[in-house]
Design a protein around this nucleic acid. Structure first.
Lengths: 348, 348
DNA sequence: TAATGATAGTGAAACGATTAATTGTACTTA
DNA sequence: TAAGTACAATTAATCGTTTCACTATCATTA
């Protein structure tokens, strides 16, 4: 691979001139410009980004830390991130933490040491540990400043940019939808992990229940956010001949598990029990009884987070901003037999 | 962030000494070693990987080019890649091509120019274009040599390392399984894209049909590898009052679509029509009628490809090798009501 | 004609590491 | 004591860019 020196030699000019021609940041006569460009072409020259990074202290690279790419929620977020980043000529360095807070901290440190220009962080920090976690992040930042944009959650204060969704409202409209469908014994299955996003969903549920005078009927259980756990919990509950006629779960995975249990025990969805999930993972539209759910704009979250980060990197007196994206209810068969039956087009 | 120069100054030694201490590649007296290490600690020094890369011409970075991370097949591959790479202290630069061959070529060029140490390439090149594509790859490699490991497919010759699966055998055992279940009017839905992997699956189907004297019964249709397409194609076929009693599809997505069509038209799975998919995407185990399928070890493919690449990078007289991983049939309810009903544990 | 100004182009330092070549000190041996 | 040896530590070149500071050339003006 040719270097700028070889191009300069070939064109009979100095390396500075070559650099100026290619970066168009200083006047160079048409004649030399032409000679330089010809040499570039002839030698198939491309600037070495490593050398450039060393000199410029910019790597044109964004670190992406996700909880678990295997969880079908995330690939779409990553796709959104990737697309916007590539449009802006940034590359993505990818880290998976598997919901391990230590792995996450290591990833952050690692990315800092690699001089990425910015970090997109989908943290797995639970709500009770945020104070300590914030200290870690601020410590890191004081050591070397790198812009960070958080995904899905804030850090409790407004010192960090973030792209989140309106989880509270999601929980609220989900629950209200069940109430509108005439359900009054509504169970909520929340997340055992104390993540702010799921806690907010639970608060939305409570708010709706209270608003519609169902405060006494509130019933909340907690589970891991996986179908197996939804299935088992649901079996257990239904066996105790419950009178539940509506369920709102903290995510679609739980709902899918719960639906299976409900069907196995011979109850009808939505007639006997209606159910609403959260996230709108595409699998929800594939089930035989398609799942009503609160749609989270995953791809857009990714794109927006990338945009926000790049904006900050290009202009360092931008104030931290927390974007809260709206959510919307997608009514499918698990609450309304005339609900949407079409498959989501993504996921393939 | 402190540089090696500052550490040297703080410790009162030369930068060379610092480097030797940290890289442990030359004897340094215990006394100086101690002083250096203390300074390193005090200044919280980390070597700048950019500078190191420039000097060493190694970036400790692997480029990963995938067709589409949104397709649920790939996240697991990526997880496998990521895990092994991180174990070996390599980072991943991630590219999505959306099955666009030009985007793929650009990604390759881009990664070469970024001086990645190696590339994992899940190409989307169709079989008929391989000759031309090989020229492109070899052209690239002659310009600057970078090891490439292919995923899922070879380039037709054995000049390039690859991690593939035994697609032919997969097609064969899938079809044989249907025959064993007493099915004799077996439709195969192949991929419209002429990818070697799906072509091989089709060949496996043919081989089994011929072997069991069902040559005259062969029936092959082609579709895009998405549930919608499986659904529509299947509806069309069943409307023409077909006598099909078995189906083998080129992937699970098609099978999931086909199952929906079959059920909607009132036929029973597997009694009237049994169906086998390919890939074992986890959704297959979630369906109400779980799907019999040929399991492709996705995570292992990722890990192995990363291992193969890193091995090559560490030892450049390793010969190109094509690894063909075995596949296995997972019998579920779409061919056998007593088949496996458990959910796959991944995907959440 | 001499002094001044404008500007195209170049030289060289800098980014932060690694490492070959060299220096300088201490010790051994004749 | 002088020459030779060993080896710890340093100096400086190098990787490939960018960009500041400078030179050299030519035109302009008094």
């Amino acid at each position: 691979m040719a270097s700028i020196k070889e191009v300069a030699k070939e064109a009979g000019v100095s390396v500075a001139t070559v650099s100026y021609v290619l970066n168009k940041n200083k006047y160079v006569s048409p004649e030399l410009t032409k000679r330089v460009l010809q040499s570039v072409q002839k030698l198939n020259y491309n600037a070495n980004p490593i050398a450039r990074s060393l000199r410029n202290k910019k790597t044109k690279t964004i670190g992406v830390i996700l909880q678990n790419i295997i969880n079908i929620f995330f690939p779409q977020v990553l796709a959104g991130l990737e697309e916007y980043a590539k449009e802006q000529n940034y590359n993505l360095l990818f880290f998976n933490t598997y919901n391990d807070l230590n792995a996450e901290k290591e990833a952050i440190t690692s990315l800092m040491n690699m001089w990425v220009d910015g970090i997109i962080l989908d943290s797995c920090v639970p709500e009770p540990m945020k104070t300590e976690y914030v200290k870690f992040i601020e410590g890191i930042k004081s050591h070397k400043s790198v812009p960070i944009v958080l995904l899905e959650r804030t850090l409790g204060n407004n010192n960090h940019s973030a792209v989140t969704v309106d989880n509270f409202n999601g929980g609220y409209i989900a629950t209200k939808h069940l109430i509108d469908k005439g359900k009054n014994r509504i169970l909520h299955i929340g997340a055992i992990n104390e993540w702010s996003m799921t806690l907010e969903r639970t608060e939305g549920y409570k708010a709706a229940m209270v608003e519609y005078g169902l405060e006494d009927q509130m019933m909340i259980k907690y589970a891991n956010l996986r179908p197996q756990d939804g299935y088992e919990l649901m079996k257990e509950i239904l066996m105790q001949n419950s009178t539940i006629n509506g369920i709102f779960t903290a995510n679609d995975q739980l709902a899918i598990g719960a639906m299976k249990a409900i069907k196995e025990l011979g109850q009808l969805i939505p007639e006997d029990v209606a159910i609403v999930g959260f996230d709108n993972i595409f699998v929800s539209s594939l089930m035989e009884t398609t799942l009503t759910t609160v749609n989270v704009p995953k791809y857009e979250m990714g794109r927006l987070a990338a945009k926000q980060l790049i904006d900050i990197m290009n202009n360092d007196n931008i104030q931290p901003e927390v974007i809260k994206l709206p959510v919307n209810l997608i009514v499918r068969q698990s609450t309304d037999l005339r609900g949407e039956k079409n498959w989501e087009l993504y996921g393939w």
